Computed example of a mutant assay.
Amino acid sequence: MATATTHGARDHARAQHGTRNGAMPVVPASDWPDSAPGTPVWAETVAGGNYTHRVLARGTELRLTDLAGDACAHLLLYAEGRPWERLNTADTVKVQWNAYLGAGRLLLSDQGRVLASVTADSSGRHDALCGTSTLRRNTERYGDGTPQSASPAGRELLKLAASKNGLEPRDLPPSLSFFQGVRIREDGTTEFTGSAGPGAAATLRAEQDLTVLIANVPHPLDPRPAYTSTPLEVLAWRARPTSPGDALWDATPEGRRAFLNTVDFLTARGLA
Score class of each variant (00 low, 15 high):
residue 192 F to V: 07
residue 235 L to Q: 09
residue 218 P to A: 06
residue 139 T to W: 02
residue 199 G to A: 14
residue 176 L to Q: 01
residue 170 R to N: 04
residue 179 F to L: 06
residue 206 A to V: 06
residue 247 A to H: 09
residue 207 E to R: 11
residue 188 G to M: 15
residue 217 V to Y: 07
residue 173 P to Q: 07
residue 242 T to Q: 07
residue 252 T to Y: 00
residue 231 P to T: 01
residue 129 L to I: 15
residue 152 P to T: 10
residue 168 E to W: 10
residue 211 T to D: 05
residue 225 P to W: 12
residue 213 L to K: 00
residue 216 N to K: 07
residue 261 N to H: 02
residue 182 V to H: 01
residue 223 P to E: 09
residue 161 A to L: 12
residue 189 T to K: 07
residue 232 L to S: 11
residue 151 S to A: 14
residue 227 Y to M: 07
residue 222 D to F: 04
residue 166 G to H: 10
residue 191 E to L: 12
residue 173 P to I: 04
residue 205 R to M: 03
residue 142 Y to W: 15
residue 207 E to Q: 15
residue 253 P to F: 10
residue 209 D to V: 12
residue 140 E to P: 03
residue 226 A to W: 15
residue 257 R to E: 13
residue 180 Q to M: 10
residue 246 D to A: 11
residue 199 G to W: 06
residue 258 A to W: 02
residue 253 P to H: 04
residue 244 P to A: 09
residue 116 A to E: 00
residue 224 R to E: 13
residue 125 R to C: 11
residue 231 P to F: 02
residue 186 E to S: 11
residue 240 R to K: 13
residue 156 E to D: 13
residue 208 Q to G: 00
residue 134 T to I: 00
residue 234 V to D: 03
residue 167 L to E: 07
residue 148 Q to F: 02
residue 202 A to N: 03
residue 163 S to D: 04
residue 145 G to I: 02
residue 214 I to P: 06
residue 232 L to Y: 09
residue 256 R to T: 11
residue 128 A to L: 05
residue 139 T to H: 11
residue 205 R to K: 10
residue 114 V to L: 05
residue 222 D to W: 05
residue 113 R to C: 11
residue 168 E to V: 14
residue 241 P to R: 05
residue 197 G to A: 03
residue 140 E to V: 12
residue 173 P to S: 12
residue 218 P to D: 06
residue 175 S to Y: 01
residue 155 R to Q: 08
residue 169 P to C: 14
residue 147 P to R: 13
residue 235 L to G: 03
residue 208 Q to N: 09
residue 248 L to W: 06
residue 225 P to Y: 12
residue 144 D to I: 00
residue 237 W to T: 02
residue 197 G to V: 02
residue 154 G to D: 07
residue 228 T to C: 12
residue 135 L to V: 06
residue 119 T to R: 13
residue 129 L to H: 09
residue 223 P to G: 06
residue 258 A to S: 13
residue 231 P to D: 08
residue 160 L to W: 10
residue 176 L to K: 02
residue 141 R to G: 03
residue 190 T to G: 02
residue 171 D to N: 12
residue 128 A to Q: 03
residue 235 L to M: 11
residue 146 T to N: 05
residue 238 R to V: 13
residue 124 G to P: 00
residue 140 E to Y: 08
residue 172 L to A: 14
residue 151 S to F: 00
residue 218 P to Q: 04
residue 204 L to A: 03
residue 189 T to Y: 07
residue 175 S to W: 00
residue 202 A to K: 08
residue 210 L to D: 00
residue 245 G to A: 08
residue 137 R to T: 09
residue 225 P to Q: 11
residue 197 G to F: 01
residue 129 L to M: 15
residue 141 R to A: 09
residue 252 T to E: 01
residue 253 P to A: 04
residue 114 V to G: 00
residue 130 C to M: 09
residue 224 R to Q: 13
residue 225 P to V: 07
residue 135 L to R: 15
residue 247 A to G: 04
residue 205 R to P: 04
residue 129 L to R: 13
residue 161 A to S: 14
residue 225 P to S: 12
residue 175 S to E: 02
residue 154 G to P: 04
residue 154 G to C: 13
residue 148 Q to D: 15
residue 187 D to T: 06
residue 237 W to V: 07
residue 187 D to F: 05
residue 171 D to R: 05
residue 145 G to H: 08
residue 208 Q to C: 01
residue 228 T to R: 12
residue 115 L to A: 01
residue 204 L to K: 02
residue 225 P to N: 11
residue 154 G to S: 09
residue 258 A to P: 08
residue 179 F to K: 06
residue 220 P to N: 01
residue 165 N to D: 05
residue 157 L to S: 08
residue 206 A to T: 11
residue 149 S to Y: 10
residue 208 Q to P: 05
